[in-house]
């Protein structure tokens, strides 16, 4: 039985359709990443799951509770961190935590113990008396997560929790999520970062209010048709122009100091063939090898082939 389950959830704002019918089934203890371009409807979907926004149609159940009918019944088992999770800037780190602990009825010795644990967990121990408004971006996000965790929710909904955070803080944040995952918390997280999506067990690509595809990161990467050859070269524009004439060429994009070339799967030795092709045109390259497509490329492929487009 799925911990998060929704069927044909829809929501429009005026004439704009934000969520056009989404089905989700997320198992207990799963960490699920929701990914998609801006305006895809991720935030709207999460707000409906959290019970702060009523869907126009469809059903949502979290841990068996009908969220549309009884949003207040999931409050205790749900931790929700909105995109703009705001702390009370004039309250200190500890006061912010205390407030949420009080509201969620975490009291006495349990409260003390849990807050200490959260402060350590979020690496905020040394900053407990600092006003939340004076924390760095990454620390704010960690405090926000700590606040959302104060009541030990079994389900976490995180809306772009690491947006605008430096890579090191991002990594720390995900280490925390990994710990929670090991504790058995079910996590649904939206993210614009592909490396974060790779850390999820399953990923759903949302576009224009629908989930186009959902699967494990590996399975999604495998969706890119053909094989991929990476060419490391100085003169990438010339190489890019040359590969279009390569027989079996299906597409390409630059990726830093290299060009990713997608070719037909039935080519016997695409690396050798492409190397010969470039040699024939007098184009030098440093290195050429076959590589696995990235998640990002899988998504670009999926978006380009979205029948709704």
């Amino acid at each position: 039985m799925s911990t998060i389950r929704c069927r044909d959830v829809q929501r429009r704002f005026g004439r704009t359709v934000a969520v056009a019918g989404v089905d989700l089934a997320i198992a207990a203890g799963e960490i699920y990443g929701l990914i998609g371009p801006d305006g895809a409807g991720k935030t709207t979907l999460l707000r409906m799951l959290a019970g702060v926004l009523r869907p126009d149609a469809g059903s949502i159940h979290i841990a068996g509770v009908d969220v549309v009918r009884h949003p207040e019944q999931v409050r205790d088992l749900l931790g929700y961190m909105p995109q703009r999770f705001s702390l009370y800037a004039d309250l200190s780190v500890l006061e912010n935590l205390l407030f949420y602990a009080d509201i969620f009825g975490v009291r006495g010795a349990a409260r003390r113990e849990r807050l200490e644990r959260l402060l350590a967990f979020a690496r905020l121990d040394a900053f407990r008396h600092r006003p939340a408004g004076q924390l760095s971006g990454g620390m704010k996000k960690k405090l926000a997560l700590a606040c959302a965790l104060v009541h030990r929710p079994r389900v976490l909904l995180l809306d772009e929790p690491t947006n605008g955070v430096d890579p090191i803080s991002r990594r720390e944040f995900w280490d925390i999520l990994a710990d929670l995952h090991l504790e058995g918390v079910t996590i649904l997280v939206t993210t614009p970062y592909m490396d974060e999506a790779e850390r999820c067990q399953r990923v759903g690509l949302m576009h224009r209010g629908r989930i186009l595809r959902q699967d494990t990161p590996a399975a999604l990467r495998a969706l890119v048709p053909g094989r991929m050859v990476a060419v490391y070269a100085e003169n990438l524009p010339a190489v890019a122009a040359a590969v279009t004439a390569f027989p079996g060429h299906r597409g390409h994009h630059t990726y830093g100091d290299r060009l990713h070339v997608f070719v037909d799967a039935d080519l016997a030795d695409p690396v050798a063939a492409l190397a010969a092709h470039l040699h024939g045109r007098g184009l030098p390259f440093r290195q050429i090898l076959e590589d696995a497509p990235r998640l990002e490329e899988a998504f670009i492929h999926l978006l380009e082939h979205d029948p709704g487009l």
Binding site: R47, E72, R75, P82, S86, Y100, I103, F104
Partner: peptide, 14 residues
């Protein structure tokens, strides 16, 4: 304005 109201609604506060 702060965005904290959504969080308050998410708490058990009725």
């Amino acid at each position: 304005e702060l965005g904290t109201l959504e969080q308050l609604i998410m708490t058990p506060l009725r």
